[in-house]
């Protein structure tokens, strides 16, 4: 109770408006946490499982071919008796590696081109953007197939092929962001303060687009993983001993016709669930990026 000396200002009863944002915010938080947990689980799995599970499960064992899921083989076995859990996790590891490296390479390349085009403008901009248009005109998969076909099968041709087809969107995003930043009065203020164009680019413009570029990179990882899987599914990706999830799904076509669903389902799920979780995290990040430009009070 309030003291008698201070009349009306009793402790206020705080409330949040029912139904407006508390529920939606709760769902959003739950989704972010679930996504984060799944991504963490994926990373732990690809790091730990190969170390913990005995390697002999990779061995061909024709006596136990195409066994359905059981306690001994939670994901079942493939048509030559290899444990599918272990092969799927290995495949996920390869897919994730290709996805992350390809996304990084594509983002660095895209940011460099986009930043150069946006900062320099003029004919440099025109030349670089026509280059981007030219690359965009070729269908992704076709370009990917071409690149892979030029090299011997392996991880690097796939990385190069995925990166080569994915830096374009980043370049466009970064250039657009640079152009938008470049017309802000704070660039005028920096010019008036004696800053060179180089300094303005490095100190004001590039740091301003890095969050966007980072977001683009994270959003690109799932995309790159799917692309790799598609190439592998077409038989153009990784060789059999470096099986990725795409390779596994491709190999499972035969057993699927014979009624064995598990060699398709489990690698497929391992591709879908982590990529969705990663995309969910990236979306939450994107939502966080915008309100920071507002003033303090509307938080």
């Amino acid at each position: 109770m309030a003291e008698p000396a201070t009349p009306p200002e009793a402790a206020p009863v705080w409330r949040t408006r029912p139904g407006r944002t508390a529920g939606a915010a709760g769902t959003r938080t739950l989704r972010v946490r679930l996504s984060a947990a799944l991504v963490l689980a994926t990373v732990l799995a690809v790091l730990l499982v190969p170390a913990l599970v005995p390697l002999d499960r990779q061995a061909v064992d024709l006596a136990s071919k195409l066994l359905p899921p059981s306690w001994d083989h939670p994901f079942g076995t493939d048509e030559v008796g290899r444990d599918l859990l272990l092969r799927s996790v290995h495949g996920l590891r390869v897919s994730l590696l290709v996805g992350v490296v390809a996304a990084l390479v594509a983002t660095v390349a895209g940011t460099a081109v986009g930043a150069a085009a946006g900062a320099l403008g003029g004919w440099t901009d025109r030349l670089l953007m026509r280059l981007v248009d030219t690359f965009s005109a070729v269908p992704h998969l076709l370009l990917g197939v071409l690149v892979v076909a030029l090299f011997r099968p392996g991880v690097w041709p796939v990385v190069v092929s995925v990166a080569l087809t994915h830096w374009l969107s980043t370049a466009r995003i970064v250039r657009a962001e640079m152009l938008s930043l470049r017309s802000r009065p704070f660039v005028d203020a920096a010019l008036s303060g004696g800053a060179s164009r180089f300094r303005i680019t490095l100190r004001h413009l590039v740091p301003g687009v890095l969050p966007q570029a980072g977001l683009a990179a994270v959003l690109m990882i799932p995309h790159a993983m799917w692309h790799e899987s598609a190439l592998s599914f077409l038989g153009l990706g990784l060789p059999a001993h470096e099986a990725s999830l795409g390779t596994l799904v491709q190999n499972a076509r035969g057993p699927l016709l014979a009624g064995a669903w598990w060699p398709t389902l489990f690698p497929g799920l391992l591709l879908i669930v982590p990529t969705l979780a990663l995309a969910g995290l990236a979306a939450a990040w994107r939502d966080r990026l915008s309100p920071r430009t507002r003033s303090e009070l509307m938080l």
């Binding site: 009863v13 409330r15 949040t16 408006r17 407006r20 509307m298 938080l299």
Partner: peptide
Amino acid sequence: LGLLPGNAQTAG
């Protein structure tokens, strides 16, 4: 107007 963001609380 009931247009406060989700982390706002009101009294009164």
